[in-house]
């Protein structure tokens, strides 16, 4: 165990170099550069509000503003889907290095989640800006309480979940390229399964369907985040227990899978 720890300490520079590289390269050659980190979620939220605002936006009138509600969910979902997708491709994309130099291979999925986490943190400023805008220019009630500081917790749980899922996917794609295409479809499904554009109690679902939607760990994480940022109240503790448990389990499975299969990567890359 200490051997692995020492190895990570030695290669932590590689971790930071890859994070740095991904962040730097993401918007290089674009005119607006890093500004896209704000602009992109803002514009996509605008589109979603235009499309779904009439259908789902009504019930939240007077309670919270629908665009902010939507932005909260979308930011978290976008981080999860981007980070896991990048992590998924990271090992096969680094084939040329892995074939020649010894590097601890888990650095690649980890660093790709890391760089996405960095841009995600920057993009949270959009949320801050939007809330400020609503506070100053509209009379939609905002419920800003000290609970907003607790929003760090769902974000960290989400980070953990992304690492776990990213590790698992990166192993699977080395052996089966199909996973990449399947996961693309799965992410679309996940977008609609997670209450991003709607509220779960709005749909009036019963029994299995409702249970199925609630089994999605993103549901718990997004709900926790909204509790403390939007509604200014404590979350339902079951959300935390469930999502944290789920995330730790995926990390454990991911690590075990990675450890068991990493020596075979080179034969398939």
């Amino acid at each position: 165990m200490t051997k692995y720890f020492k190895n990570f300490i030695k290669y932590r520079y590689l971790f930071w170099e890859i994070v740095r590289k991904n962040v730097k390269l993401q918007y290089r050659d674009s005119v607006l550069g890093i500004f896209w980190t704000f602009l992109q979620p803002l514009l996509t939220t605008l589109v979603l509000v235009l499309v779904f605002g009439r259908v789902f936006g009504k019930s939240s009138e007077g309670v919270v503003s629908y665009p902010i509600y939507l932005l909260c969910g979308r930011l978290l979902y976008e981080f999860f889907s981007q980070a896991t997708k990048r992590a998924m491709r990271s090992v096969s994309n680094s084939a040329s290095v892995i074939k020649k130099v010894y590097v601890p291979k888990y650095i690649y999925p980890l660093a790709n989640v890391g760089s996405n986490f960095f841009t995600f943190l920057i993009s949270l400023l959009v949320l801050v800006a939007m809330m400020a805008y609503y506070m100053i220019f509209t009379d939609t009630p905002l419920h800003i309480t000290p609970y907003i500081l607790l929003s760090v917790v769902p974000i960290l749980v989400l980070l953990l979940l992304s690492i776990g899922v990213g590790l698992i996917l990166s192993v699977l794609t080395v052996f089966f390229k199909d996973v990449e295409y399947l996961y693309e479809v799965f992410c679309l499904l996940l977008f609609y399964m997670t209450p991003i554009i709607y509220k779960l109690d709005q749909l009036d679902l019963k029994g299995w369907v409702s249970l199925g939607l609630k089994a999605n760990p993103l549901y718990s994480i997004v709900s926790m985040f909204r509790s403390c940022v939007l509604f200014g109240e404590m979350w339902d503790w079951n959300w935390l227990y469930y999502s944290l448990g789920f995330s730790l389990l995926t990390v454990a499975v991911g690590m075990a899978l990675f450890y068991k299969k990493q020596d075979k990567f080179i034969l398939y890359l």
Partner: peptide, 11 residues
């Protein structure tokens, strides 16, 4: 810097 880090050298 990337290449040197791949070989485990600090920045």
């Amino acid at each position: 810097f990337l290449y040197a880090a791949t070989m485990g050298y600090p920045r």
